[in-house]
Simulated assay, not measured.
Amino acid sequence: MTEINPYLPEPATILETIQETPTIKTFRVRLDDPAKMRSFSFQPGQVGQLSVFGAGEATFVINSSPTRLDHLQFSVMRAGEVTSRLHGLAAGDKVGVRAPLGNHFPYEAMKGRDIVFIGGGIGMAPLRTLLLFMLDNRADYGKISLLYGARSPVDMAFKADLPDWTARSDMTTVLTIDREAEGWEHTVGLIPNVLLEMAPSPDNAVAVTCGPPIMIKFTLQALKRLGFGDEQIYTTLEKRMKCGVGLCGRCNIGAKYVCVDGPVFSYAQLRELPNEL
């Protein structure tokens, strides 16, 4: 097997870009070394560093599925110099990839349980990889529910996936926006409020959530009201990661390093850390 050094960016080529929203762009890339691409493997929730040569690198979850390895997919919100430079790239351009990094969602421990996904905006990216993995291994899991929301229809990412998710008979999908919009045919309401209306049972269930901090705060409160225990709730903090390998020390929360101990944490684990989120 061809080894991949996580300290060195692997040259990769952008195969396709998708403009998800005015500020979010998805990149489908393939490592230039065919042997390394064939041997590449990762687990749902792990991340990678994308580098723009001459500009720097930033961390993004690999939001394609480990079961679909014809390419690696990263979705990038434009927020600074590196992400702006990434948004300027197109199919055929080169990037560097350091991956996989970090831990992953405990999908083995989730087998046989009901799974509740709650995503907001770009926070759907880490949920997407786990959702696709579970759908490709559908018999291993119980009921699958997805609540995905954004401020407006324009702000919803992964629009190409939504028709399939809403049409599937083996999962329940609820899409919501914060306020009424012309042509919108789905739910209207803030994610935590819609979650309470959905009222998923906590019995033999796990909730996986990611989104803006304010959404997470009130979603956690809603899950607690529904009876979910701290150990039944998972989220991911990859946005805090810097070097990705524990050298720079910039992603610490107390004694924990997000890149070494995370980025995936249960709410029970987060409750034990200093309130720095």
Rank of each mutant, 00 (worst) to 15 (best):
S39L: 01
A99V: 00
D164H: 11
P106M: 04
M134A: 10
Q46H: 07
L131N: 10
R98M: 06
A79Y: 10
G88D: 12
G54P: 12
H87L: 07
R98L: 08
R85V: 09
P106T: 12
D93R: 04
A167M: 11
L127Y: 04
A79L: 15
H87W: 00
K36M: 05
H104N: 11
A35N: 15
D161H: 04
G123Y: 03
T59G: 04
H104F: 15
D33Q: 09
R38N: 14
I122F: 02
G149H: 06
D70C: 10
G45I: 02
Q43C: 00
K143W: 00
I118E: 11
A150H: 04
S39E: 15
R128E: 05
L132S: 01
A125K: 07
G96V: 11
G45W: 10
I118K: 00
D161N: 08
Q49E: 13
T172P: 00
L131D: 06
F60Q: 06
L146A: 00
P100M: 01
A160S: 14
G92E: 03
E108H: 11
Y148I: 08
R85G: 03
L101Y: 11
A79Q: 13
M124Y: 12
R113S: 08
M124F: 15
F105D: 01
S152N: 07
M156G: 08
A79T: 13
G112S: 14
G96F: 00
L127C: 04
L131F: 03
G54D: 14
M77I: 14
D170P: 09
S64Q: 02
I144T: 05
G48V: 02
S39Q: 14
L130V: 12
G48D: 09
I115K: 07
K143E: 08
L147H: 13
H104Y: 15
V61L: 06
F42C: 09
Q49W: 06
G149K: 02
